[in-house]
Design a protein around this nucleic acid. Sequence first.
DNA 1: CCGGAACCTGACTGTATGGTCAATTTTTAC
DNA 2: GTAAAAATTGACCATACAGTCAGGTTCCGG
Lengths: 227, 227
Amino acid sequence: MKALRTESRPPADTRPKGRVRRRQEGAILKAAERVFARAGFEGGTMAEIAALAGLPKANLHYYFGSKDELYRAVLDNILSLWLAETEVITRDADPARALTAYVTAKMHLTATRPDASRVFANEVIHGATRIGDFLRSELHGLVAQRAAVIDHWATEGRIAPVDATHLFFTIWAATQTYADFESQVCAVLGKARLGQADLARATTHVVTITLRSCGLEPAGPPHTSLQ
Amino acid sequence: MKALRTESRPPADTRPKGRVRRRQEGAILKAAERVFARAGFEGGTMAEIAALAGLPKANLHYYFGSKDELYRAVLDNILSLWLAETEVITRDADPARALTAYVTAKMHLTATRPDASRVFANEVIHGATRIGDFLRSELHGLVAQRAAVIDHWATEGRIAPVDATHLFFTIWAATQTYADFESQVCAVLGKARLGQADLARATTHVVTITLRSCGLEPAGPPHTSLQ
DNA sequence: CCGGAACCTGACTGTATGGTCAATTTTTAC
DNA sequence: GTAAAAATTGACCATACAGTCAGGTTCCGG
């Protein structure tokens, strides 16, 4: 939850959250995620977010002091999503199963919360100034751990040797591309939007290439879950 | 070159380009690419670009009518880069060699022109409104062609069957991540910037997983060109 | 049902920024 | 060498936008 805490003022953190507050903040955050995803931090306006949330603009400033604070709250909200799902990667797990589960979960996230992915991507592209600490601590540590597990699999001969850290970069890139670069994917596929079938196909593909990267083949018949 | 021609006014295209004009436009485009890469279209300011190019702001408006026109020029400049390099993928080529060459070229571009990659990424994330036509025509056609070649390789049994179109998505994502998400990669690797060694390692990795995705192994000894 | 706290909001303001323009200097062509 | 074309530039707008605030309304414990 409170993954991000770079340099905001210490007070105001223990605000009492009433019923109304929680509801309104939720609506604002949802609208903000959408707007920031579409236009970025600079491009999205408070008025736009307010309109989408069905509130007067001054209300946003009541709940979140400034645009920057609101943006940070959106990011904060998103970051927790990024950490989850890696717990399937353990020494004792079956590599094929674990990797399949991880990639599938990532793809599910991409399909479910594309705007979250886009806000995150936008922030990172522009230098990740607001989430640098998070990336350097939590994410760095997490990757080190999981990469060690994958290396361990390799030394035991259960998978072909791979650059485990870079494998994570590749998996993230391959999955998030279906959210961040959706327009491009759609244009190339000749579709207006990505349907469930497209995402299922994408998932199968990414799982396949991930497993093959480790010298494995997908369990069960190929193309298990089309549609 | 003039890949982008969505809806700008027909005249002004055949402007006579003098010596001075060419030089100044070049400087402005270079500065603009940098600024737009760092801050996006909305975030980057004309004043900032002017300062970086060492010119008064009014000068930018003399050469490029508006901020939007300048941005389009930057994109236009970049798009041609995206099309190149696929010509190595032909029916008669050796799959391993061709794919290695293609991925290597893509990685080289990423390493050489990271700002170009970031501007492009930014545009696509935000809906690719300005380059939609390009993606739907040129890129779409190109991918269809090359995907057919890869499928052909598969039917001849020279590679394992893959989803060729999605393979392109994956290659693009995997390579561009080292430009677009450099901050994240750096944070996870615990470095301040990506050095040549890092990029060499990344290249080896992406080549490996691309080949393995097609059921191939890298030619020659692994880790050929570290450094 | 009362008093205080939380919540709401229309009408403002200051400022950053894209864009204009007329006056001047530099370049180019003959 | 000269006149026209191209290039330069400081000073100047108009607007869009984040942020403010005072005065109101609703909520809630006692």
